[in-house]
């Protein structure tokens, strides 16, 4: 499984990682939006599992979570969406991102087995830090699912080895201490942070939080292996609802173009 992820970061140029919330605005609308991300040139897809209490998210993704749940999205829908995605896109890595409780509600073993069955490559869980790895890490690793951890501006050098240990696929560098949304880190701080993290791991590093435009994405991509864009895409879904595929594809294409060519610019 991790094969698809490592391939995505081994294309000789930075990768575009895109996030949308599964089931937003409805479970039926999600496949077309996912296809738009792929068509636009996204290298890795993060599919958000909706949760009632998205504590680490700003207003845009909070609202997306609630829209999805209000449309009746269930965990089974997310896995069905993932499995169908895998059938349509055998090469594009798919990562589920969300909060701990929906992932462990039926047991981590059940969850990891479902991920494997659906062709999910990795998991990002906001509220399972390395200290609580036993909650889900062993089950994911046993099923060959990458556990993608987050590093943040508060993750110091002493702590980094613990964060890296047991992680695979890539490392997600959360560039601002804060929630998802509009707040943006300075490019210099990213350059410094990525260099620091690189000294502690060989994993590819994708930088996210607050990246909205192709220009911002390019600036970040110049210093990392990947850039994550979430809220800006989720905003398009909020705006266009079930007709979001077109606008999502357009923005993704512009982002992909900027990210893929970023290194050439520096």
């Amino acid at each position: 499984m991790t094969q698809r992820l490592s391939a995505a970061f081994a294309k000789g140029r930075p990768a575009l990682v895109t996030f949308i919330t599964g089931g937003d605005p409805t479970p039926d609308a999600t496949p077309a939006i996912l296809d738009a991300l792929v068509a636009g040139g996204a290298d890795v897809i993060e599919l958000g599992m909706p949760f009632t209490d998205p504590m680490a998210d700003g207003p845009a993704i909070q609202a997306a979570n609630l829209r999805s749940l209000a449309a009746g999205t269930r965990t089974a829908d997310i896995f069905r969406i993932a499995k169908d995605f895998r059938a349509r896109h055998p090469e594009t890595p798919l990562v589920l991102m969300g909060y701990a409780n929906p992932m462990v509600a039926r047991g981590s073993e059940w969850f990891a087995a479902q991920c494997a069955d659906a062709g999910v490559d990795g998991i990002i869980c906001v509220d399972i830090p390395s200290e609580e790895d036993p909650e889900i890490g062993p089950a994911l690793r046993a099923h060959g699912i990458s556990f993608i951890r987050l590093a943040t501006p508060t993750t110091d050098t002493a702590r980094l080895p613990a964060v890296v240990d047991g992680s695979s696929g890539f490392l997600y560098y959360v560039s601002v201490a804060g929630v998802t949304g509009k707040q943006q880190a300075a490019v210099d701080s990213i350059k410094e942070a990525v260099a620091r993290i690189k000294s502690g791991t060989d994993l590819p590093i994708a930088v996210g939080f607050g990246v909205r435009t192709p220009e911002q994405a390019a600036a970040f991509a110049a210093h990392a292996e990947g850039v994550v864009v979430g809220s800006a895409l989720v905003d398009l879904v909020a705006q266009h609802g079930a007709d979001a595929a077109g606008p999502v594809r357009e923005l993704t294409a512009a982002l992909a173009d900027a990210v893929h060519n970023a290194k050439a610019l520096v």
Partner: peptide, 20 residues
């Protein structure tokens, strides 16, 4: 020492908060 009361408790927080 890891903050567990039997299977309960723990530190299920975002990485940003963990060092704090």
């Amino acid at each position: 020492e890891r903050g567990h009361f039997g299977q309960f408790g723990g530190r299920y927080v975002a990485e940003t908060l963990m060092p704090l």
